[in-house]
C-alpha cells in the first residue's frame, strides 16, 4: 500500500493530518501578523527618515560651503546669512575630548574593579550607584555641577564645567559597556595566565584588557556619541557665543547644541533658521562619524582570527 501525500489527497490512513494547504484561520493570522509588523517598522522608520530629510534639505547646502567649516559667526547678525560653525564644532569636540579624558579612566577602572575584584557588599553598593547614575536626567547632573561649581565655589560658567556634567552622564554608560566586554573574556584565559605564574594585575593588563580592547573602545565611542548631543548641561553651564573660544576655564564656549538653540530663538530670520538646520546636520554627522569609528574598531579589533 502506498501513502499518497499529495495536496488534496483523499486516501485514508496516514497518522499525520493531511499535508495540504494551511488552514484558512492560520493564513489569516499569518497575514495579520505580517501587516502589523510592517506597520510597526514604518512607524519606527518614517519619523527617522523624515527628520533626516528635513535636516538635510534645509541645512545641507550650508555644509557645502567652505566657510561653514572655516568661519565662526563672529560679527554676523541673525539677519545676515554667511559665517560658519567652526567655533561650535571646536567647542563640541574640545568638551567631548575633555569629558572622555576624565570619564574613561574612571569608568574603565570601575568596571575592572566590579568584574575582576569586586566581591561582597562594597561591590554591590558600587554597582547600585552606577545604576542610579545611569538613571539621572541630564538636567539634574547639570544642576548638580552648577550647585558645586558656581554656587559653592563661585566659579564662572565655563567649558570645563560643562565637561564635568557630561562626565557624570558618560561614566555609567562606559562602566556598563566595559563591564559587559570584560565579562565576555573567557575565564580560561585568566586561568591560563595565572598558571604561567603571572600576577593578577598583569593578567588583567596584558591578557584581559587586550582581549576586550575593541569592545571597550566601541563602548567608549558610543558613550561619547551619546553625551555629545546632550543639551541640558550646555544650556545651564555653557552659554553660547558667536566667536571661536578654546579656553576651557575662561569665558563662554560655543557648541553645536547651543548654536542650534541660539538660532532657534531667531525664528523670524530665514538666515538664522538655515544656520539652525546646518548646525543640526553637522551634529548628526559628527555623531555618525563616531558611531562608524566605533564599529570599525569593533571589526578590526585586537583579537586575531
Amino acid at each position: 500500500m502506498t501513502t499518497d501525500t499529495r495536496v488534496g489527497s483523499t486516501s485514508p490512513g496516514p497518522v499525520l493530518p493531511a499535508l495540504g494547504n494551511p488552514s484558512r484561520s492560520r493564513t489569516i493570522r499569518d497575514q495579520v501578523a505580517r501587516v502589523v509588523m510592517w506597520l510597526a517598522f514604518l512607524v519606527a522608520v518614517v519619523p527617522l527618515v523624515w527628520i533626516l530629510w528635513t535636516v538635510v534639505s534645509h541645512g545641507g547646502h550650508l555644509l557645502m560651503e567652505s566657510q561653514w567649516w572655516t568661519n565662526s559667526q563672529r560679527g554676523i547678525t541673525s539677519r545676515r546669512a554667511g559665517g560658519g560653525a567652526v567655533h561650535a564644532i571646536q567647542g563640541t569636540l574640545i568638551q567631548a575630548a575633555v569629558t572622555a579624558l576624565i570619564a574613561v579612566p574612571i569608568a574603565v577602572m570601575t568596571a575592572i574593579y566590579l568584574v575582576e575584584y569586586g566581591r561582597g557588599k562594597f561591590a554591590k553598593a558600587v554597582s547600585f550607584m552606577v545604576d542610579i547614575l545611569t538613571g539621572i536626567p541630564s538636567i539634574v547632573a547639570a544642576l548638580f555641577i552648577y550647585a558645586v561649581w558656581v554656587t559653592t565655589f563661585g566659579f564662572q560658567r565655563v567649558g570645563f564645567a560643562v565637561s564635568l556634567a557630561l562626565v557624570l552622564l558618560m561614566i555609567p554608560v562606559v562602566v556598563r559597556s566595559t563591564e559587559e566586554m570584560l565579562k565576555l573574556v573567557p575565564n580560561e584565559l585568566r586561568e591560563a595566565s595565572y598558571a604561567l605564574g603571572v600576577p593578577k594585575w598583569k593578567t588583567i593588563a596584558k591578557v584581559v584588557l587586550p582581549t576586550a580592547f575593541s569592545g571597550i573602545v566601541t563602548g567608549i565611542l558610543l558613550g561619547l556619541a551619546r553625551v555629545m548631543g546632550e543639551t541640558a548641561p550646555l544650556l545651564i553651564l555653557g552659554p553660547y557665543t558667536k566667536s571661536i573660544a578654546t579656553n576651557l576655564f575662561s569665558g563662554y564656549m560655543p557648541t553645536l547644541p547651543t548654536m542650534i538653540n541660539q538660532d532657534r530663538t531667531e525664528l523670524g530670520q530665514p538666515a538664522a533658521v538655515e544656520r539652525m538646520w546646518g548646525a543640526a546636520l553637522t551634529l548628526i554627522l559628527l555623531i555618525l562619524l563616531l558611531n562608524i569609528a566605533g564599529r570599525l574598531v569593533a571589526r578590526f579589533g585586537s583579537v586575531k582570527k
Binding site: E188, L189, E191, A192, S193, V207, K304
Partner: peptide
C-alpha cells in the same frame, strides 16, 4: 598547567 580546552591567548 595545561587545561581541558585549548586556551591560547586570542590577541
Amino acid at each position: 598547567m595545561v587545561f581541558q580546552r585549548p586556551n591560547p591567548f586570542p590577541t
